[in-house]
């Protein structure tokens, strides 16, 4: 246990005990691009790392029992006056260290230990909470982000009893979550963003449970100051409809029936800074080949972003119900 002070944990979730949070073995999953090459020797005997499948070099391994690890609120640009924050990005909420404590069962804890990173929206339709990890890249290469995550809508108390005892209406209170990047080669090169969204429900609250990718880029501060007006319901894109289905991306995840039982999921996303493309996305049993998916590129250069490499995670509610994304741990590795 890395954090000295611990909360009482009423019970360990099944995935955290005997299974040790095993990642899907890569030999069992279709891997169209076969990015990982096999367990690295130093992973043996280290269950905190062995649940990941890193590429050649690990850049960082963030276990949120150790603290916030540099995952910060996404902050809009300003010139010292916070009144100038653009509405689209003015309120992305500070990340939290969560013990997954609920009103009915107490503390759930994380996959290992007690704490996970929590992003929490306001109870306001289309409000989004965004966490960003900011670093830079040394040379163009493949980058792989892996994480163990779960997602929930806040418990509500307006149930009408029309419930089959299995699928909770609260599952339909969860909107979507997205993993994305922001890569810039500096003044001489392009700036682009890959974004992959798990759309749990559509904007009317009907179940979708599929992966999507964005087909446009959000308006930057620079673009807004040049006269482009941004919508405020989806910070990723220019128009809220600028999303397309990932081929083969239908995937029911394990919400586990009610709002207070959390089951951790494994996610592995690879993108390539050399080709400026996604490579693949694996979530539990499903691996999606993303190499042919177009990646939108800004049509102007950006100064002071030389070799920028940002990774982002966000959660967006579609209703007046808080939505949460919990991340037990993250590992980012590169192949060079």
């Amino acid at each position: 246990m890395s954090m000295d002070r611990r909360l009482f944990s009423a019970g360990m979730v099944a995935a955290a005990s005997a299974s040790g949070g095993q990642a899907p073995r890569r030999t069992n999953a279709p891997t169209p691009t076969s990015v990982p090459t096999g367990p690295l020797p130093y992973l043996a005997g280290n269950p905190e790392l062995a649940r990941f499948n890193p590429l050649k070099r690990i850049l960082f391994h963030d276990d949120f029992d150790n603290g916030i690890n540099g995952w910060a609120e996404l902050q809009a640009n300003h010139n010292g006056n916070l009144d100038d924050l653009r509405p689209l990005l003015k309120d992305m909420r500070p990340p939290q260290l969560s013990s997954c404590t609920f009103f009915d069962l107490g503390t759930h804890g994380s996959l290992s230990g007690t704490y996970s990173l929590k992003l929490a929206t306001r109870p306001k339709p289309f409000h989004t909470a965004v966490g960003v990890k900011r670093f830079t890249y040394a040379k163009p290469c493949k980058v792989q982000m892996e994480m163990w995550f779960t997602y929930k809508a806040e418990q509500t108390f307006d149930g009408d009893g029309n419930w089959d005892g299995n699928v909770s209406p609260s599952e339909l209170n969860f909107g979507d979550f997205t993993i994305s990047n922001d890569v810039s080669e500096g003044e001489a090169g392009p700036r682009y963003q890959c974004a992959l969204r798990y759309m749990n429900t559509d904007l009317e609250g009907k179940s979708l449970q599929k992966w999507m990718y964005k087909t446009s880029l959000h308006a930057t501060t620079k673009m807004e100051r040049q006269g482009i007006t941004a919508q405020t319901d989806d910070y990723h894109v220019l128009k809220t409809t600028d999303w397309a289905d990932v081929p083969g991306g239908y995937q029911p995840l394990c919400f586990n029936e009610i709002a207070t039982k959390v089951n951790w999921h494994y996610l592995r996303w690879v993108f390539d800074i050399q080709t400026r493309r996604n490579v693949e996305l694996q979530v539990n049993e499903l691996t999606m080949d993303l190499r042919n998916i177009p990646v939108p590129v800004y049509d102007q250069g950006y100064r002071s972003l030389n070799h920028l490499l940002n990774l982002l995670v966000d959660v967006r509610t579609h209703k007046s119900v808080r939505n949460f994304l919990f991340i037990d741990s993250v590992l980012v590795s590169v192949d060079a």
Partner: peptide
């Protein structure tokens, strides 16, 4: 928790976890 927010009626801030 709030950035240059203007309130003109009773309010509560968003819940924040502090167990650690």
């Amino acid at each position: 928790i709030e950035k240059n927010a203007t309130f003109s009626a009773p309010f509560e801030t968003e819940p924040y976890e502090t167990g650690w």
